[in-house]
Amino acid sequence: MLNRIKKKSIAICSNLILLFFLLIVLYPVYFIMITSFESSDTLVIEFSVQNFSLDNWKYILGIDYINTVTQEVVRSPYPFIIWFKNSIKIASITAAIVLFICTLAAYGLYRFTFFGKKYFLISLIILQMFPSMMGMVALFLLLSKLGTFFPWFGLDTHAGLILTYLGMTPFFIWLTKSYFSTIPKSIVEAAMIDGCKEFTIFYSIILPLALPMLVVIFILVFITVFSDFVIPSILIKDPKLLTFAVGMREFISAYDIRWGKFAAATILGGLPIVIIFMITQKFLVQGLTKGSVKE
């Protein structure tokens, strides 16, 4: 009896502590939210909205509205919805391709030893530490040369942009390989005894067991690509192909940050990630190694 009360009180305590942390963590997010409903385009740091209005949201969503002061119809010249779709498309495709490359490479590293494996591993993670900002000129030139041979991959194309993002794979290869290493060797051995081919082991056994980590990588890549504005701003000029993050920068100029619209754009931009996470949560939390092999 006492044990149960003790357990319950610990549970409630931990819940409260978590709630407290959550509120602190979401504190700035609250400000961003109320700023998006503020009509005077300033950052609201009081606790409530001063002038409530949906104008910022209408601007972002491409709905015309009437400016109350000048009585003119305001229509955003920026096709935010198109940019939003572009970003989602690019982020998902990149994440999928990264997963493809990562899992294959991680499996190769996990299962086989070959000449130069150690050095390959080391160079994978060390060379990626080079600040990518400085490599932009090189990538720009690469894509522009590539574009003259293969128009699909040149500057100002989504394919070229996705290609650039594939530079983040080495890190995730490490991550995936680490996860593979935690899969008990006995499973793999059992499969080999059963006469499975390498690819089957990869596809039917390792991948499903590694699902939680694959979900994590998908989300991480998606977020990184979706929020990135440096690379698309340099590589893409066609307004129909721009991404959402670059578009948001429109609202920031030296003196005049249009906070309201910026905040609304941010919330819109955060939605896909939150939705993806909510959907994929259940894959994240299944203990899939349960009972598969008796140790």
Partner: peptide, 13 residues
């Protein structure tokens, strides 16, 4: 989901 949100918001914002 709540704890993920800080990461979902682009750093530059």
């Amino acid at each position: 989901v709540g704890f993920l949100i800080p990461y979902a918001i682009p750093v530059f914002l």
